[in-house]
């Protein structure tokens, strides 16, 4: 992305204070209203634009810190799965793509499983990392969901899954498609154990991820403006040869069509989740 900031201001600042002292991401442009946002303010505002309220990308770690009480959580290890089962290669080897994503994100794959408390209640969160190959779901991600479900049952904890994913990881072929029934079994086990299973839909949630565990929650919460759907917008436009409206497949559109319970601003997420978990888990409190 090139604009007056990166072309002009940044080099200018660099020339004054020296290159090393100025991080590349000092300013960010809001993709919605194009306001220039100062990185520090943006971080303080949970990566929500001050001008228009647009919800920008929010890192998994920031999100876990936001949702868990006192920002305290522990990583739940996910068992390792066979590496590159198909020996897939397109223009690039899948093995190399994984290694690059691992180097970039410092994570094993596109999912992080964490345990902690929300509103004092034991909770497991499985959160997708979109920076890792578009949050795509292969066997490792499937394993993460299964592990999250198992540990939730074992600890009598609620399960919250936070997808941010383009869908199945095609470099794992049919194995990735099989993660749809596999994760469906996992969340079914949580439901059968009588524990809450909540989905927090974030941008984007599409394809095989939206068409499996992500649409099977007891409660569906979506972030404002998040893109949620089965088929990609471009595929639909090519099929029907028409331009689609801007709000198509947004969180708000899904709510209007009865697919999500609520659209909740990032700043209200913790309180909302805490209240829901309280209602579902503390079912008998004597009135004070």
């Amino acid at each position: 992305m090139s604009n007056w900031l990166s072309d002009f201001i940044r080099p200018k600042i660099r020339s004054i204070v020296g290159a090393k002292d100025v991080p590349d991401n000092l300013w960010e442009k809001c993709p919605s209203c194009e306001a220039m946002l100062y990185a520090k303010d943006l971080a303080e505002n949970l990566h929500v634009c001050h001008q228009c309220g647009h919800h920008l990308k929010f890192s998994v770690h920031d999100r876990l810190n936001l949702l868990f009480d006192d920002g305290a959580w522990a990583n739940v290890p996910v068992p390792t799965v066979p590496f590159d089962p198909l020996k897939f290669k397109d223009k690039k080897k899948y093995a190399d793509r994984i290694k690059e994503s691992q180097a970039k994100t410092n994570e094993k794959d596109a999912i992080i499983v964490a345990e902690g408390k929300i509103n004092g209640l034991a909770t497991i969160i499985a959160a997708f990392n979109f920076d890792f190959m578009g949050g795509s779901m292969g066997t490792a991600v499937g394993e993460g969901i299964v592990r999250a479900a198992e540990i939730a049952i074992q600890k009598r904890a609620s399960l919250i899954v936070i997808p941010s994913s383009g869908g199945a990881r095609m470099q794992e072929g049919l194995l990735s498609l099989m993660q749809m029934p596999r994760t469906t079994v996992a969340v079914r086990m949580v439901k059968d154990a009588g524990l809450p299973y909540i989905v927090l839909l974030t941008n984007p949630t599409t394809g095989g991820v939206s068409a499996s565990f992500a649409m099977l929650g007891d409660i569906h919460i979506a972030e404002p403006g998040a893109m949620i759907g089965f088929a990609g917008k471009r595929v639909i436009e090519e099929t029907i040869r028409e331009k689609l409206p801007d709000d198509f497949q947004t969180a708000e559109y899904l709510k209007e069509h009865g697919m999500v319970d609520m659209v909740v601003a990032r700043k209200d997420l913790k309180e909302t989740l805490g209240r829901i978990l309280d209602l579902l888990m503390r079912r008998n409190i004597k009135a004070a």
Binding site: M180, T184, S210, A211, S212, F213, A214, M215, L216, I228, G229, F230, A231, G232, V235, I236, T239, I240, L244, F248, Q249, H257, G258, M259
Partner: peptide, 16 residues
């Protein structure tokens, strides 16, 4: 992959 299919919850229908 159509507008009507999305509007009526293609993802949810497949998942269920």
């Amino acid at each position: 992959p159509g507008v009507d299919a999305e509007a009526r919850g293609q993802s949810e229908a497949i998942a269920q």
